[in-house]
């Protein structure tokens, strides 16, 4: 037993020492990351009013999703596979919703190859490059989402090439399936997408995005954020969407500001102020009726305790017209305003 013990300790020592020496040279390990989220929401009209994504259940302690991502890179080749289980990552994220509403949902499933240090090729099903907010709750500051996020693409399947001019500029161009948020195309691979990234000064990044196709319509998007001081960050998202002729007429235009201030080591306060205007036409959005608008203010705190973030949030939305969809308690009398409280907890790993 003593011999075995000594042998085991020796092996462990050598293995550990060898690992330490190789830390900077070996391929990165298989990366497992993700998050788990749960929330409580209370709409002050006593029923759900605000139509944006997630945090949908009224007066309920509900679950978001467990999000599991795997990434491995060997040499120049890499893959990412990310799946989510739970309402946020299943029926509320669109794919398969029409079939059973309860299938698991692939968030990312792609392979990529670094042709050179500056040139990368990627193909598969990817989170969209458009917009400020994302599906995974760990990637957002606010727990509820903006109208622009809800009405924009979530994912795009396709093939893209990215060229990095320098740390301050890169350009992506790609060809994507004809429809958003589906694993397979309707019939064509004819949506063109492009993204220009610029980083004019340290801490400031801006993405100018375009996604246009005969079926998916055309969206132009600006997403930018600037870490102005150690404590203060300002984000901005502006988007314009026009539906494709094949689908109808209309679309939306929106702009949102995201100021965030770190008030303590583990506490950051933030505001999202959004103006969302729907265009006249036949296409309806998750928002006010065509030709109307909504203004939404969301006050959010992020309180961190290690990997766990508590997110208390108060949201006030005001539609332009009484007929834009909000109703008072009882669900019959129309009103212009809606308000809700959310307390969410997100654990990231």
């Amino acid at each position: 037993m003593k011999k075995k013990l000594l042998l085991l300790i020796s092996l462990a020592t050598f293995a550990y020492a060898a690992q330490a020496q190789d830390t900077t040279k070996a391929d990165p390990p298989l990366m497992i990351s993700g998050s788990v989220d749960t929330y409580f929401k209370y709409d002050f009209a006593k029923h759900g009013n605000i139509p944006t994504s997630f945090a949908s259940d009224q007066n309920s302690i509900s679950i978001g999703m467990i999000d599991l991502a795997l990434k491995k890179k060997v040499g120049k080749a890499a893959f990412v596979g990310e799946m989510s289980f739970g309402p946020r990552g299943q029926a509320q994220s669109i794919p398969n919703d029409a079939n059973d509403g309860n299938s698991y949902h692939v968030q990312n499933l792609y392979v990529s190859y670094d042709v050179t240090d500056k040139f990368n090729l990627t193909g598969g099903y990817m989170a969209t490059f458009m917009g400020y907010e994302v599906i995974a709750p760990a990637g957002n500051f606010n727990y509820s989402t903006s109208y622009m996020f809800t009405n924009g693409p979530f994912q795009n399947a396709g093939f893209k090439a990215t060229y990095l001019f320098s740390d301050k500029a890169s350009l992506m161009a790609g060809i994507f399936n004809d429809a958003w948020n589906v694993y397979t195309s309707v019939s064509q691979v004819n949506t063109f997408g492009a993204q220009l990234m610029i980083a004019p000064v340290k801490g400031w990044t801006a993405y100018i995005n375009l996604l246009t196709g005969k079926l998916s319509g055309t969206e132009i998007d600006l997403t930018t954020s600037y870490q102005i001081t150690d404590a203060f960050k300002l984000g901005l998202n502006a988007a314009d969407f026009s539906a494709a002729d094949a689908v109808g007429t209309g679309g939306f235009t929106g702009v949102a500001l995201y100021p965030q201030l770190a008030v303590a080591k583990d506490v950051t306060l933030g505001l999202r102020g959004e103006y969302f205007k729907t265009k006249d036409g036949t296409v309806t959005t998750y928002g006010p009726a065509p030709g109307s608008s909504v203004t939404a203010f969301t006050f959010t705190a992020n309180i961190k305790s290690g990997p766990l973030t508590f997110i208390p949030e108060v949201r006030l939305d005001r539609n332009k017209a009484l007929s834009d969809g909000f109703t008072k308690s009882g669900g019959i009398t129309p009103t212009k305003s809606a308000s809700q409280f959310v307390l969410a907890a997100v654990y990231s790993f």
């Binding site: 989170a127 995974a136 801490g203 954020s225 870490q227 150690d230």
Partner: peptide
Amino acid sequence: YKRDRFGNMTAIPGV
């Protein structure tokens, strides 16, 4: 680093 929307760990600009 923070995980981005594509599942990659990337630097947080300005921090």
